[in-house]
Write a protein that binds this DNA or RNA. Structure first.
Lengths: 127, 127
DNA sequence: GCTTGACCTGGAGCGCGCGCCAGGTGCTAT
DNA sequence: ATAGCACCTGGCGCGCGCTCCAGGTCAAGC
């Protein structure tokens, strides 16, 4: 699969895919003799996984570490698990903060709606 | 209140406070004749508000716009409300993505625990 | 008077996560 | 043969959100 096809399937730019490979976010992709990348389904799965994790805010650094451990084989299983647990916990903390802010925003919006209504009654002609 | 005191109370550096003021995240703080900032309780409330929103990932740009509208008075009420609604909706979308990833991570961690247990049974001496 | 220390300003620097671009290579079609 | 196109590499640039630094001012204490 060419890089352009992966771009479409994973909704990502070629620059980003090459960047991910450079920094080790996805294992090195096989090349045709001419040097052109030839992605396998497995590669695409990695891309999807990374995009997904990135979308939730996991850092490139952490994901690169995970991939590096993965490539070292089963001896790193527990280390990988620990990494995932840490990232999950960080995510949970972020989400809790966001939940609180979401509530605050909703409360603020409610009072704004009230105040807007009042303001309109005072400042707009009756139709 | 001096900048150092606000730093402690809001858990933020002086550089950040000055930065926030420069870019309009908090209204201009009153100065002593010597030029030294003198924060009021109201100023501190703004700092707390901004820190809170920033912690949830709202962008500086958006918050600065909100503060700018705020300072224009009641005529901007509905515009401010719209801004808050947009930001809340964006936050909700981010949280939903994160919720999905959190579940994925939990599932992955569960299978890792299983595999770790297996690996240990195969590779570790029985005590 | 002099030191000390907290604060000031303007501007440069940094880490992150890409994005962009120039210059070159190789396949394909005409 | 040649044109066109997709892809390659290396490296610079950028937007964001701070962070740090040099050089200066001011007030208080000794």
């Amino acid at each position: 699969m060419t890089i352009a096809q992966v771009c479409k399937r994973c909704n990502v730019t070629a620059d980003t895919l090459r960047y991910y490979e450079r920094v080790g976010l996805i294992p090195a992709v096989r090349r045709a003799p001419s040097g052109i990348r030839d992605y396998t389904e497995v590669d695409v799965n990695w891309v999807d996984f990374i995009r997904c994790m990135r979308a939730a805010g996991l850092q490139v650094r952490a994901l690169a570490r995970y991939v590096a451990l993965f490539r070292k084989g089963d001896a790193t299983l527990s280390e990988r698990k620990d990494l995932l647990v840490r990232q999950r916990d960080l995510l949970a903390v972020r989400m809790e903060a966001q939940r609180a802010v979401l509530e605050k925003l909703n409360a603020k919006i409610a009072t704004y709606e009230e105040r807007c209504a009042v303001w309109e009654r005072t400042h707009l002609r009756k139709p």
